[in-house]
Design a protein around this nucleic acid. Structure first.
Length: 596
RNA sequence: CGGGGCGUAGCUCAGCUUGGUAGAGCGCUCGGUUUGGGACCGAGAGGCCGCAGGUUCGAAUCCUGUCGCCCCGACCA
């Protein structure tokens, strides 16, 4: 096949579009792959569609390898299935809803678990039909609060979503592994670096969940990884508790005056000045126990105050807190929360800046304490660890307060921020923090949807069993953007060969008749060799413009037919390395094939 | 939802402070000259200056309101 640039529906832009910040967005628009229609919604031009189709082809091959069959659901769906699982409400403002002429509710599907489940229920009723894996490549619609970065977070995006159906947990493990393997092959073929991180399975009720993240500074997720191979989303990171220590040699706790020390920084300074450590080492923030009051809003609307205690050198990571307290909503306690607490009879006052689990009159925090406020601590607050913390008395802290001896907790909680250098929970060394973009997610859903929608089959014993499911998402248009993000330079895009819109970009540079004759013949022969050729045949366009467009469009191999055409040679230009070599016309196909 | 910025030609922008009825570059059309790194000359097409009120003899410009967009944050399977 070949396409003449003079005929291709495209217009490249000389300047960067003003609304594009990240490289992939900027370049895909500039090079004429996509055009914005509305925030987070894009039209696809021929170049963009060709790349998209190549990515889809790779995905389809690997889905077939994994034994999944392709189906296609509409993007426009009725309300009922989503009503059955509660997601019509749960999604809130996150979905596009619409009504038909009879005032019936519809939505543009944000994801398709429900209808996949219902279709299987419709067709299958025996264990003999399982396992089953089916998938589609379909557009999803989410009314994002803030679409950003072009294709990286859109309101309309293409996703490959696969679902597996098994009637045993062991079967689900096998199906899950097949998809997981397929993802590894897909991203490897696409040349995309990826890290598989443990994800939070949380509110979805699943048992196993892993995300494929592509490390990139424009990524939206923060994850951690260790040199020893541990990787996890920060939401899923767990902290190893130090071993319990004996209390025996520890000195008793002591209340000391610390006026004007409502913050950790002032407390540490004051402690070092007025109450230096007996061993001569300086107090640090990590020696203090910071007690943060959080306000939880439970699903039934009730409000609960919770205090979390964590080492003073760490802040609460609200994303981790959301996971820890799911499904409740979490926010720092508000003034209204403190006022409401004050109005409860027979409760001691919370002294801001001096809150702690212990007071001279007994336990202050915890379900069985004077306040009755639930008190959870970071795993580092292990039995036998000693702390400086608030004495619930303005201007006073208690020093040497020992967990398990002087105060008790209602349990541990993972809400502290993760810092670079923290030890990985599997002992594989200290972790580093990195940014990543989620490009795939494999997820053992378990029986949540099958339960809600009544998907059961008869097993070998003639008993009805609920099917267990997995869901496996891969953002096709996001992957396209991520590839563009990872493969460009200041001149434009540089596609990997197997997703490039064309195999080779032939540029005719020069006005001599011979240039055009040689170029035409070359295009024919490359086509004959099975290559998909983009031919810049524009007659009155200067070479500089053609070279610039070729670099912008990003086909990895460019062939320049120009001043040496008469001698039967052309230049083969490796877009990625910039290297240009003179090649006899007859050897071009071989030279092109040699460039990955 | 909070913070910041911006709406003038297809694109990137100037003009607004100090009101006088629309500009540049690129792109596009026609003619000619050019042709290995975004050429040049000449002639053109193209804008309800986001929208609605108001002030004024007169508003892109001043005032009020409104809508929209972009960026950062919150949120997000």
């Amino acid at each position: 096949m070949s396409t003449r640039l003079s005929q291709l529906f495209v217009r490249t832009l000389r300047e960067d579009p003003v609304d594009a910040e990240v490289a992939s967005h900027r370049l895909l628009v500039r090079a004429g792959y996509i055009r914005r229609q509305a925030p987070g919604i894009f039209a696809w031009l021929p170049l963009g569609l060709k790349v998209r189709a190549k990515i889809e082809a790779i995905v389809r091959q690997e889905m077939a390898n994994a034994g999944a069959q392709e189906v296609l659901f509409p993007a426009l769906l009725p309300r009922e299935p989503y009503e059955l699982t509660g997601r019509w409400e749960e999604y809130g403002d996150g979905i596009f809803r619409l009504k038909d002429r009879k005032d019936a509710d519809y939505l543009l599907a944000p994801t398709h678990e429900e209808v996949f489940t219902l279709l299987v229920k419709d067709l299958y009723s025996s264990y003999k039909d399982l396992p089953l894996s089916i998938f589609q490549i379909q557009d999803k619609y989410r009314d994002e609060a803030r679409p950003r970065a072009g294709l990286l977070r859109g309101r309309e995006f293409s996703m490959k979503d696969a679902y597996s159906f098994d009637y045993t947990d062991a079967g689900l493990d096998v199906s899950y592994q097949k998809q997981r393997d397929a993802y590894e092959r897909i991203f490897t073929r696409l040349g995309l670096e990826y890290v598989i991180v443990q994800a939070d399975a949380g509110a979805m009720g699943g048992s196993r969940s892993e995300e494929f993240l592509h490390p990139t500074v424009v990524g939206e997720d923060t994850f951690v990884r260790s040199a020893g191979g541990y990787a996890a989303n920060v939401e899923a990171f767990t902290t190893e508790a130090p071993p319990a220590r004996s209390f025996e040699k520890l000195t008793p706790a002591e209340v000391l005056p610390t006026p004007d020390s409502p913050t950790i920084a002032t407390l540490v300074a004051e402690a070092n000045e007025r109450h230096p450590r007996p061993d001569g080492r300086a107090w640090t923030a990590a020696d203090t126990l910071k007690n943060i009051v959080l306000g939880l809003t439970h699903l039934d609307g009730t409000r609960e105050l919770v205090v979390v205690g964590l080492p003073g050198d760490r802040d609460v990571d609200l994303k981790r807190a959301e996971v820890a307290f799911a499904p409740a909503d979490v926010e720092p306690a508000t003034e209204a929360d403190f006022l409401a607490f004050e109005r409860i009879p027979d409760r001691p006052a919370l002294v801001k800046g001096y809150i702690g689990p212990w007071s001279e009159t007994g336990a202050f925090l915890g379900e069985d304490s004077a306040t009755g406020i639930r008190f959870l601590t970071d795993p580092r607050v292990s039995e036998g660890s000693g702390w400086i913390t608030g004495a619930n008395l303005a201007g006073h802290h208690v020093f040497g307060l020992v967990a398990g001896r002087d105060f008790a907790t209602d349990g541990t909680v993972e809400v502290a921020e993760v810092l670079a250098g923290d030890p990985a929970p599997d002992g594989s060394g200290p972790v580093e923090l990195a940014r990543g973009m989620e490009i795939g997610h494999v997820f053992q859903l378990g029986r949540k949807y099958a339960d809600a929608l009544g998907l059961k089959v008869l097993d070998e014993n003639g008993k009805l069993v609920t099917v267990t499911m997995g869901s496996y998402g891969l953002g096709v248009t996001r992957v396209l953007a991520v590839i563009a993000e990872a493969n460009n330079d200041e001149k434009g895009l540089i596609w990997p060969r197997n997703v490039s819109p064309f195999d080779v970009h032939v540029v005719a540079a020069g006005r001599e008749e011979i240039v055009w004759e040689v170029a035409e013949a070359l295009v024919d022969s490359l086509e004959g060799a099975g290559l998909d050729v983009l031919f810049d045949d524009r007659p009155k366009v200067s070479p500089g413009v053609k070279f610039g467009d070729a670099e912008l469009i990003g086909v990895p191999v460019i062939v320049i037919v120009g001043r040496s055409a008469a001698e039967g040679t052309v230049e083969v230009w490796n877009r990625r390395t910039g290297e240009r070599t003179s090649v006899a016309v007859g050897d071009v196909a071989t030279a092109v094939a040699a460039i990955g």
